[in-house]
Amino acid sequence: MSSEYASAQAGEPAEEGGGGAREAAAAGRRAGPVLELVELTRVHGEGAAEVQALRGVDLEVAAGELVAVMGPSGSGKSTLLTLAGGLDMPTSGRVVVEGTDLTTASRKELAALRRRSIGYVFQDYNLIPALTAAENVALPRELDGISSRRARKEALAALEEFGLQQLADRFPDEMSGGQQQRVAIARALVGDRRLVLADEPTGALDSETGDAVLALLRSRCDAGAAGILVTHEPRFAAWADRVVFLRDGSVVDTTLRSAAESLLAGGAAQ
């Protein structure tokens, strides 16, 4: 890597996340990053078949922050997301979600954390076809053990907050792809969840609809959630506060967006 990278990275102000900390304080939640990946390494296979999917990746995502992860196929993007969500365990390193280390947590703690703190959004929406939008959003809360009446109330509130109330009683096949994905984001963030992990959530959508999905994800992060978005589409990664580039399992570069004041000063648009 050229020394230009090093200086570019060192020169970046470490101000991003300040807004997130503010949001967290406003919401009365614990300070510090929602997600912390420390020296994360994942090796698949052994001997000659050994593949280093991730090599010592460090990443923090604060409340209020949306981080995009980009990289060619095989660069480790999906592995990173799987590890961050506790769906797989690293070979070494730590995954800390809301202060709990997933690598040392008991099976029961891990299951609870996956259910209560982490929301997932997938490329193919993964809504349950036999349930309405409201029932889909209520489902994770019911699994959390709250009454179905309360779960439904929370689901309707979440849909309304996301501007999706008109979809509440529709079944997935009565919704467009973009609508389904927005409902899936509502489901990922219902209740107290504030970490959302999105794997190519715009994969099957056109650019305008994809933008609408990203605008929703962005607004949820602005409201205090923390998000990781894995995508190979620059246009969608551009909604993030930070874009992390992976190559061969390592972070090779990170870009921050500019400070708001400088945006219209003529530097951004030429």
Binding site: S2, A237, W239, V243, F245, D253, T255, S258, A268
Partner: peptide, 22 residues
């Protein structure tokens, strides 16, 4: 490295445009 440095720069510009668009 040349490609990556340009890609970072270009995507950063996109982040800025996207924020203006939002």
């Amino acid at each position: 490295a040349v490609i990556q440095s340009q890609r970072s720069h270009t995507i950063r510009a996109m982040q800025d445009y996207t924020r203006l668009k939002a």
